[in-house]
């Protein structure tokens, strides 16, 4: 039982996909201008991650190793489309707010990364717990970042006006530079106060979406591939 809890909490704190593993940066930066769209993004990505982890874990003995990546991509893309259709039909405001970043969940590194690193090797229950933990970690990071950006940038939180801040909004926080800046500061904060080993290196191979089939993994820094043997 303790083991199961560990699988679940792993993604929330110790291996938080956004703040510690630095995965899925694009949606984090883009959808964190408002708390409501950030939570929508987190929920949509969690739903896709949960479905894909469960199915990939179920099929892990059926899918041949050589064609696993195309299989994963088809499964993930299908779940993304399903979430897209459901949101369009039943939650139009979220669908509208997420825009192009909704179909782009397909290429979110967290989902393919978890499929490759966890779901393809573990049981269904563990994979589902892992997906929930990772999804929650992703959503929480988005939530924190969106709270900061919305509070300072628009002077509101979940659409509610905040005292003082509402009269002095710093509009730049909701724009692109604010996204980079707040994200940089959050990671610095985690580095400073995080109990776990801070990430000294700037960017590592495992946080790359293509790590699963990149020929340069392990050589670090996407440098030229060492000469192939003849």
């Amino acid at each position: 039982m303790g083991n199961k809890i560990k699988v679940f909490t792993n993604g929330i704190i110790r291996e938080n996909p956004v703040l510690v593993l630095i995965l899925g940066t694009c949606p984090v930066l883009a959808t964190s201008t408002q708390v409501s769209s950030a939570v929508g993004m987190g929920a949509a990505a969690t739903a896709v991650l949960l479905c894909s982890n469960i199915f990939i874990s179920l099929l892990r003995k059926v899918i041949p190793d050589k064609v696993r990546i195309p299989c994963y991509i088809v499964l993930i893309a299908s779940f993304v489309t399903i979430v897209q259709m459901l949101l369009n039909a039943y939650a139009y405001s979220i669908y509208d707010a997420l825009g192009i970043f909704l179909p782009l969940i397909v290429v979110n590194c967290i989902i393919l990364g978890r499929a490759e690193m966890f779901a393809s090797k573990n049981t269904v229950v563990d994979s589902a717990l892992d997906a929930l933990g990772m999804g929650l970690g992703f959503t929480m990071a988005l939530f924190v970042m969106a709270s900061i950006r919305e509070a300072f940038g628009s002077g509101t939180w979940m659409g509610m006006p905040l005292p003082v801040l509402a009269d002095n909004p710093v509009a730049i926080m909701t724009m692109a530079p604010g996204g980079f800046f707040v994200f940089g500061c959050l990671i610095a904060f985690v580095n400073k106060f995080g109990k776990y080993k801070p990430r000294k290196k700037s960017f590592e191979c495992e946080s790359c979406p293509s790590a699963t089939f990149c020929t340069m993994v392990g050589f670090g820094d996407c440098q030229e591939r060492p000469k192939e043997e003849a």
């Binding site: 059926v62 899918i63 041949p64 050589k66 064609v67 299989c71 088809v74 499964l75 299908s78």
Partner: peptide, 12 residues
């Protein structure tokens, strides 16, 4: 390979 990938595509 083709059978597995094809089945997944079809079902989805």
């Amino acid at each position: 390979y083709v059978a597995v990938l094809g089945t997944i595509c079809l079902v989805m």
